[in-house]
Amino acid sequence: MRGMSSPPSINPPGRRPTTGTRPASLEANRRDGAHGRARRTARAVAIVATGAAAALGLVVSKEIPGASASAQATVSSTSSGTGGTTATPSSTTSSATQNTTPSSATQSTTPSSTTKSATVVSGGTGS
């Protein structure tokens, strides 16, 4: 495993990490437990080592819509994380990923049609 050279980002203690204004669409999508969740965690301290996540290759090339676009944790750059591939690294505008350095290669990860026989099946986790 690659080293954890980057110090972790530290969220302010005592509350859920700030995630900015949540889009209305996401609010509308929450179900019963959402209100309960909002009341929780007054005591919590969350220290999220996103530098380590980047070192692992967890480079989500676009912030997932509805997710925490203004989260405090910043994914630091890595050049070795994703095996030299990335989806569409230039398209992100979120603060959480704007400092991410894309990997060197630009192979597409968009699937294409094929007539070849499958090597494996991607589906629900089978036996």
Binding site: V120, V121, G123, G124
Partner: peptide, 11 residues
């Protein structure tokens, strides 16, 4: 890489 898409990865 050819990847089949199905409901169960063991199908």
């Amino acid at each position: 890489w050819a990847v089949g898409i199905g409901v169960d990865s063991s199908m």
